[in-house]
Design a protein around this nucleic acid. Structure first.
Length: 303
DNA sequence: GCATGTCAAGTTGTG
DNA sequence: CACAACTTGACATGC
């Protein structure tokens, strides 16, 4: 079992920078490009630093934050890598990251945020989602990331129809995205049971989030869901990806959805132990939570 | 200096 | 109806 870190660090000195469309819009085009170019160089360097740090801590996977290249797909201030003064350097740094990750067997993934909704009935929403996915596909190709993971999106009163819209849009996605796309069960709408049929039909692996499953159950046991999701990964010859978090407010009363700082080892499913899989740890204390969980499991594993 | 509100984007469920 | 839940940090503004 390998554990993964999501996007950020709290103690380790790795920090990614960003900017807003509002700030960029106040600048002439040329200064927009020099500004984002600087941010992209910084972030590409920090990605390398992140991978070196992850490796030092014994973490085996890393989720790359979506705005690594800030506002790249914004309709007004968006840009291409080749527009940037340091475009070649940036590409070179991404290649270094790819080489490092491959050499040290660090699995890389992307998780586009809530605005990417392929099941939406609004063509403008789907259009901007495709643009954002294409950007992440380009990035994923450059750094050798294996997974671009999204949710089913909205329901609009009819899950079946919504998923049909998603399936209909799938062929329009660039190959860089289609070959990496995965679907994840969420905590309000789409369960593992909802997603399995479309995953099988489109040959998409299913990322199983056990916390979402516990918040939004579907009659499957954790073990059944783990195995069924696992089959979608076996079908494409890849290692299963799962997500783990603990509820900030605990499981008795209160809203269990917000994530806690750390993982309660009791929330790690028994059937995951010793299984060949990648477990992304979604916890506010970031690398500290991953390191603590690994050490607790190491201690508890003995007789 | 420091504390605070705002920032491209969608959708759902709660108070 | 407004707001939180999905990730923060950068920046402008006001004390």
């Amino acid at each position: 079992m390998r554990f993964g870190l999501c996007c950020l660090f709290v103690k380790e000195p790795v920090s990614f920078r960003t900017t807003t469309a509002k700030v960029l819009l106040a600048l002439p085009r040329e200064r927009q490009l020099t500004k984002v170019s600087e941010l992209c160089v910084t972030n590409a360097r920090n990605l390398l630093l992140a991978l070196a740090t992850v490796r030092r801590l014994g973490i085996g996977a890393f989720r790359i934050m979506s705005p690594l290249f800030p506002r790249m797909t914004h309709p007004e201030v968006g840009y291409r890598l080749e527009d940037l003064p340091d475009g070649a350097l940036i590409l070179h740094l991404l290649e270094e990251a790819r080489t490092f990750a491959r050499r040290h067997d660090i699995r890389l993934s992307f998780h586009p945020d809530q605005f990417v909704v392929l099941s939406s009935p609004h063509s403008a929403v789907v259009g901007s989602s495709i643009r954002e996915l294409a950007y992440q596909g380009m990035l994923a190709e450059a750094v050798g990331a294996e997974v671009i993971n999204i949710h089913g999106g909205g329901v609009y009163g009819d899950k079946g129809q919504a998923l049909e819209r998603l399936a209909a849009v799938f062929p329009d996605l660039p190959e860089s995205v289609r070959s990496r796309l995965t679907l994840e069960n969420d905590d309000v709408s789409y369960t593992v049971r909802d997603l399995l049929p479309i995953c099988e039909r489109l040959s998409l692996p299913l990322v199983y989030d056990v916390h979402h499953h516990r918040c939004n159950p579907d009659g499957l046991s954790v073990e059944e869901a783990t195995d069924l999701a696992g089959e979608t990964w076996q079908a494409v010859g890849r290692e299963e990806y799962c997500h783990l978090s603990s509820p900030r407010a605990g499981w008795g009363g209160g809203n269990p959805k917000p994530h806690a700082d750390y993982i309660d080892p009791a929330d790690l499913p028994e059937c995951w132990r010793g299984r060949e899989m990648t477990v992304d740890v979604e916890a506010k204390a970031k690398e500290l939570a991953v390191v603590r969980l690994m050490s607790e499991l190491g201690r508890g594993a003995g007789p």
